[in-house]
């Protein structure tokens, strides 16, 4: 029972049912919470724009995430094996994360132009840090006794890395990737607020200016679906690459 409720699909179905029943029953005013049929009607009325926006935001999020994850894993490996590098650069990474980059999206627009790249850069900037930190932590967590065993059998440094350090780091890296993808999505959405024309973030902004509560809910649900989809993709990768761990 709990497993069904805890899965995004099950949770969505239960919430939709509660929404369908409770809103007419309690006479909730539409300004607070429109009824589910009204929201579905609104979604259908803007269907092409919604689908295009969904795909656009998905593309920005995934591109930013892939770049950020690649840099994060790369830096994480470098830092885990070269302490001096970590000492020198990691503090800069930490400081970089206190900058609310989504707050000065306007300047990012000046740097990269009002293009796809601007949103990708914001998503990238938010992704790389959690991935870096988790990669370092994961790589440092491998069991020293197993490491000694591999060494006594004459395993080379590369073999120790591929056969032991990386697999034992994988679950922790996955946690970083999950954090990264949700931040990446938030970055892409906010990045669209600074003059983009296509995307879920743009539509969200327009619905606010027009005070269309139903449209706001359509977009909240669309953002939630996108988030669940991306998270699901990472979970799938987790099951494929960290198969020895019960999910």
């Amino acid at each position: 029972m709990k497993a069904i409720l805890g899965s995004p699909l099950g949770a969505g179905a239960v919430l939709a049912l509660a929404w369908l029943v409770l809103v007419p029953l309690l006479h909730v005013p539409p300004l607070i919470l429109p009824s589910l049929p009204a929201i579905i009607r609104d979604a259908l009325s803007v269907w092409p724009a919604l689908a295009a926006g969904f795909l656009r935001t998905l593309l920005e999020t995934v591109l930013g995430f892939v770049l950020g994850a690649a840099l994060g894993v790369g830096c994480g490996v470098a830092f885990a094996y070269a302490r001096w590098l970590e000492r020198a650069i990691l503090p800069l990474f930490v400081a970089s994360q206190t900058v609310p980059v989504i707050a000065f999206g306007a300047i990012v627009v000046i740097w990269f132009g009002n293009t796809l790249l601007e949103k990708v850069m914001i998503a990238f900037y938010l992704t790389f840090f959690p991935v870096t930190v988790n990669t370092i932590r994961g790589l440092r967590s491998s069991d020293p006794e197993r490491l000694a065993l591999l060494r006594s059998f004459g395993a080379s440094g590369w073999q120790r890395f591929v056969k032991l350090a990386l697999p034992s780091a994988a679950p922790v890296i996955i946690i970083g990737l999950k954090l990264g993808i949700s931040l990446s999505l938030a970055g892409a959405i906010v990045g669209e607020w600074f003059g983009a024309t296509v995307g879920l973030g743009v539509m969200l902004l327009q619905s606010l200016y027009d005070e269309q509560t139903a449209r706001v809910w359509v977009l909240i649900i669309a953002c939630g679906l996108l988030g669940a989809l991306l998270n699901g993709a990472i979970s799938l990768a987790e099951r494929r690459f960290v198969w020895w761990r019960p999910a």
Binding site: L204, L208, T213, I220, C223, G224, L225, G227
Partner: peptide, 10 residues
Amino acid sequence: AVPAVAFVPL
């Protein structure tokens, strides 16, 4: 699943 920023307009 929903990024918190999506709730800002609401």
